[in-house]
Each structure stands twice: as structure tokens, then as C-alpha cells.
């Protein structure tokens, strides 16, 4: 157990362009091993931060492009079904995406479609800057009180980015709660699936964990 306070950070991002593109499934497959891991993160996660005008069928850019542009809907569904929570490194996640495409291509008994240049998939990367928000929690009740007011960007950083890009393997929240001797609360937060909820919903769920387990003030 540690007395260390929880410092709420946020991450601000620039999108960088790799100049790499794909117009067919085979091109996408060929590019995947060579793109940086931050590109894998960008295309599997950026949609969670975007405004949800209409709930996307696929939050994963690869799945969406394969379905909507290449009309390989079955592969799109398989890519979208990859359980992001099951991976603690982006390299493993990249491997799963490649394996899913390979399996599909091996069973494909026709030529796959090549899209027009203007509909190509463009590999981007996320360039992040992590900054303190100024919000600090010194104990568990204060933590749950402050979680309720943090921004989506802050929530996204501690839940998605810290886990996969900083290699922390779990969300910052559950790690800190566990360090405070509250494995019950950490476990309950680990059970939340951030990939099936909007960030606003996720925040409500986290606050509810505190309320239901005697963590709130």
C-alpha cells in the first residue's frame, strides 16, 4: 500500500501521417507489419474519442474500411470482434489483426476488390502529449469524486493509452486502487469493458463502482 496521490493527467494528440496507403486487402496486409505501433493504436482507438453522431457499427478503422470500402463485410465483422481488452501490448494486437486477415485471405476463392485512389486507407499515427490536469486525489473517496468531473480526454488516457502505449497492462485507476489496498474496487473497474461503452457511459460506470463498494465519499 502506498500513500501516493493519484494525479489526473490528460493527453492531447496530433495525428501524423505516414504517407503509407492501401487500396486492396492484400496491400493492407502487406503494410501492417511495417507501420509503427502508434498507427495500430490510432486505427483501433481513435474512434472512441470521436463524436458519436450515429453509433458506429465498427469502432476499428481497419474493420470499417474493409467493410464499407472493400465490401468484405465478413472480415470487417471479424476484425471488429477482436477483443482489445485481451491484449496488453500493441505488438500482440497487430499480430492478431494480421492473423485474422491471413485466415480470411486463405479462404477467399475470388479476387479481392481494389478501391479507387480517393477511397484508399491512409495509415496515420497518434502523437501524444501527456499533461497534468491539475486534479489530484489523495484518498479513495476523493478519487471517485474527482473521476466524475474529468474530461473524456483524461479518461481516455488513463484507460486506453496508459494501458497499451505506456505498457502499464491495466488501467491507471485499477492499479492505483490496488496500491491503496482496495483490490475489490480495482477488480470491479477491471471488469468494466471500455470498448463497449461511450466515454461518458464509462465515467458513470466508474463512479458507480465507487458508490456500490463503499469507495465514494
Amino acid at each position: 500500500m502506498t500513500d501516493k496521490a493519484f494525479v489526473f493527467d490528460t493527453a492531447l494528440r496530433l495525428v501524423t501521417l505516414t504517407g503509407l496507403r492501401a487500396q486492396s486487402l492484400r496491400e493492407l496486409r502487406a503494410r501492417l507489419p511495417e507501420v509503427p505501433l502508434s498507427s495500430i493504436f490510432q486505427h483501433t482507438h481513435q474512434e472512441y474519442l470521436a463524436h458519436d453522431f450515429q453509433r458506429s457499427q465498427h469502432y476499428n478503422d481497419f474493420a470499417r474500411w474493409v467493410s464499407d470500402t472493400l465490401r468484405e463485410e465478413a472480415l470487417g465483422e471479424k476484425l471488429a470482434a477482436i477483443d482489445l481488452l485481451a491484449f496488453t501490448t500493441l505488438e500482440e494486437l497487430r499480430g492478431e489483426i494480421i492473423a485474422t486477415i491471413d485466415t480470411y485471405l486463405a479462404q477467399l476463392d475470388r479476387a479481392s476488390y481494389e478501391c479507387r485512389p480517393e477511397d484508399a486507407f491512409h495509415f496515420c499515427q497518434s502523437r501524444s502529449f501527456v499533461l497534468p490536469t491539475g486534479l489530484v486525489a489523495h484518498d479513495v473517496p476523493e478519487f471517485f469524486a474527482k473521476v466524475a468531473s474529468i474530461s473524456n480526454a483524461s479518461l481516455y488516457f488513463h484507460f486506453f493509452e496508459a494501458r497499451l502505449r505506456l505498457g502499464r497492462r491495466t488501467s491507471d485507476f485499477s492499479r492505483w486502487l490496488s496500491d491503496r489496498g482496495r483490490d475489490d474496487l480495482a477488480g470491479a473497474i477491471d471488469k468494466l469493458n471500455p470498448y463497449t461503452r461511450s466515454l461518458d457511459e464509462l465515467r458513470v460506470d466508474i463512479v458507480a463502482v465507487g458508490g456500490a463498494n463503499g469507495g465514494a465519499a
Binding site: L12, L14, Q125, R127, S128, F129, V130, L131, P132, L166
Partner: peptide
Amino acid sequence: MRDYLLLMLAMEHQGEELSVLTT
């Protein structure tokens, strides 16, 4: 404006993919 400020920061942290900035 935010993007331009981030770019100014990126110029100071060239070569990094994720930069942790202190207060």
C-alpha cells in the same frame, strides 16, 4: 490553435511518439 501549440511542443520533442510533460 491547440494543434499549432502542440506542433511547437513537437518541435522540442522530436523523435518521440508520446511525450510526458511536467507542470
